[in-house]
Amino acid sequence: MLEIANLIKRYGQDEPVLKGLDLVVEDNSVVAIVGASGAGKSTMLRCINRLVEPTSGSIRLNGSELVTLRGAALRRARRKIGMVFQGFNLIDRLTVMENVLAGRLGYVSLFQAVTRRFPAEDIDRAFALMERVGIAHYANKRADELSGGERQRVGVVRALMQEPEVLLADEPTASLDPRTSEQIMMLLQSLASELSLPVLINIHNVAQAKAYTERIVGLRHGKMIFDGVPADFDKAALEAIYGGIEAPDDELTESPAGIASGEES
């Protein structure tokens, strides 16, 4: 269970990006966080694993406080928080297997990491997960040889290798074509129930959020202004979240449309 209480993030003396956010996510539930660009979605996610330092507030994962952790304790906590990125954030020049095993970096010793001598059970788990998402035959391919959807699967497997207690996904489909992004959303949805993980997904595409998640949280200017099931997410909620903010129309329509090509250079 993930509990966020009164989370505030302010860069320098600017207007806070997050203004006292409260959110509780039960295990085994998929939550979509929607909002316009700059609403604070990405910042919120990064506050949870402390890639961004929260200004104040409390974030508790299964009862233990994350905001006060430092050094090795923080790294131990991060092991339990998997993250999937918009740009996949793979290490292009390493093989798929090395990228996947990188999810174990928080567990193995530096020597094991550098020499790639990972424990047998890690390798076993890596193969099992890669088979689950259909990329096992790419194990020794370089990560940059894969297509966008395959790369994001590597990203998902890497996060799952951490044996996470919560999975964060920051715009996981924004760099993918519509069909592939549907597949990735389906994958995240089914993994959440298989592994009974809470999954938080930042997403631009409201149609996908409604289709693949069971709860939608709407952010605007760092405040939560909607929290409910997809069925309740109507025109009024849409207007409240995106109204007056310039956003491409296609993001709001029913047919999902992401960026046409998922290939990153």
Partner: peptide, 15 residues
């Protein structure tokens, strides 16, 4: 989607 499962689940970094 899935290939035949390799018999031994070992992996070495390709040299």
């Amino acid at each position: 989607m899935t290939r035949p499962v390799p018999a031994t689940r070992t992996w070495r970094k390709p040299p």
